[in-house]
């Protein structure tokens, strides 16, 4: 199993964090590869030349918008279809041949999207963990981090990277 990338969106639907691992574009994730064509050419060449296969950019790219669009619509559709029933969990993940997208939303509106390979098991506990011990501890409790702005915080980046790499199904 493999973790490809993570997107974090705030309450106002803005992308505040994005990171990619395992060079998803060439690792067989057709979807990310397809989306990547929408990115500015400069970014693509940069990722191609990146020897470590690690790009770390702030959100606000075309990709982020597309991902958000998909997630947002799916969530609404799922909620509509399950109206009246127990809809506390709602939309959790979807899967294609190439990848699986996991979704977590806190009641306060933070949304975390994790893209892994298709064989991955549920990442709900991982996402919850990212939210409660990484995001809340390093961003929310950081007095210098302004709410609703892109996360530039090294501590957050560091611990998130470490946590994801430490997952048994990272690569």
């Amino acid at each position: 199993m493999t973790v490809y990338s993570i997107h974090i969106f705030n309450k106002k639907c803005e992308a505040i964090y994005f990171k990619q691992w395992n060079n998803a574009a060439t690792a067989g994730s057709n979807k990310t590869a397809a989306i990547a064509t929408n990115e500015p050419a400069s970014k693509q060449s940069e990722s191609a030349s990146d020897a470590t296969n690690n790009i770390d950019v702030d959100g606000d790219s075309e990709t982020a918008k597309l991902v958000y669009g998909v997630v947002f619509s799916l969530k609404n559709m799922v909620n509509k279809l399950s109206a009246g029933k127990n809809s506390t969990d709602g939309f959790l993940s979807y899967k294609t041949n190439a990848y699986k997208l996991h979704y977590f939303e806190s009641p306060a509106g933070l949304k975390i999207v994790l893209i892994t390979d298709a064989a991955s098991a549920s990442m709900l506990s991982v996402l919850r963990q990212i939210y409660s011990s990484i995001y809340v501890e390093n961003v929310v409790k950081n007095p210098l981090a302004k709410p609703n702005t892109p996360i530039k915080n090294e501590l957050f980046r560091g611990s998130l990277d470490k946590y994801i790499r430490g997952l048994q199904n990272f690569e």
């Binding site: 506390t88 806190s106 009641p107 306060a108 933070l110 919850r128 939210y131 409660s132 011990s133 995001y135 809340v136 929310v140 409790k141 709410p147």
Partner: peptide
């Protein structure tokens, strides 16, 4: 506005 996040993270309550 910040406290609520900690609250939700610690309690993991549904809506």
């Amino acid at each position: 506005v910040r406290l609520i996040e900690e609250f939700l993270a610690k309690s993991s309550l549904p809506k």
